[in-house]
């Protein structure tokens, strides 16, 4: 059936979106290059069909409702495929956006490349997009908004000082406010603003 392939793409995108929502973290499944290519091929096929039908219609000069319907349905399928493809891509790029905001810049690229395996889940263009977008964010954050830290926490701050536990050994980490000597399994009582970065990067765990 026309549109089945693109259905698969849409389903996958939806699944990924729901997973991300429930786990509150962003993961991106592999880019389904084959499905996308097949869908595009289908569209081309449909296009050819549509043209064929159109030329047939012109030849016949008869108001053939069936033919017209065929033509119309073909157009609709093409549009549907296009919508599906765009939705798939847009959902992925939205996830990439969210990742870029949460993972503070270049960490995201390296994390994806290293973490999810050598066969990166991003297509080449998506990687470029991610790089560009992180640059945009970096520029956005600079200037008048530096103090505000736009990629900081979006939950209202509760305590000024919090307890955090160190999850990984990371030696000395220099933050803007001071130096933290991260020894695995030690506990800090420190200012929330100072450690928030480290919490987001996964070094610390808030208690």
């Amino acid at each position: 059936m026309y549109g089945d392939l693109v259905n698969k793409l849409v389903l996958e995108a939806k699944r990924a979106q729901q997973l991300n929502e429930s786990s509150k973290s962003e993961h991106l499944p592999m880019y389904q290059d084959d499905l996308v290519r097949n869908t595009l091929r289908e569209i081309e096929q449909l296009k050819r069909d549509a043209e064929l039908l159109k030329s047939q219609q012109e030849l016949n000069q008869v108001e053939d409702k069936v033919a017209r319907c065929q033509h119309f349905v073909t157009l609709l399928c093409m549009e549907r495929n296009k919508r599906g493809l765009l939705a798939y891509q847009k959902l992925r790029s939205d996830t990439l956006d969210a990742m870029a905001w949460n993972k503070h810049g270049l960490d995201s690229v390296t994390a994806l490349a290293a973490g999810e395996g050598a066969d990166a889940s991003l297509s080449h263009q998506e990687e470029e997009y991610l790089k560009d977008y992180t640059q945009i964010i970096a520029d956005m954050k600079s200037g008048e908004f530096t103090d505000i830290d736009l990629s900081g926490s979006l939950t209202p701050p509760s305590d000024v000082f919090i307890d955090v536990r160190v999850l990984k050994d990371a030696g000395e980490i220099q933050t803007e406010y001071g130096v933290f000597n991260l020894i695995k399994d030690s506990q800090f009582f420190a200012r929330q603003a100072d450690v928030e970065r480290l919490i987001q990067q996964g070094f610390l765990q808030r208690l």
Partner: peptide, 16 residues
């Protein structure tokens, strides 16, 4: 000790 120091808002690190 840590409770005491936390009350006084002293930043500290605890290493077992």
């Amino acid at each position: 000790l840590t409770k005491l120091f936390k009350r006084q808002l002293v930043q500290l690190q605890l290493v077992p």
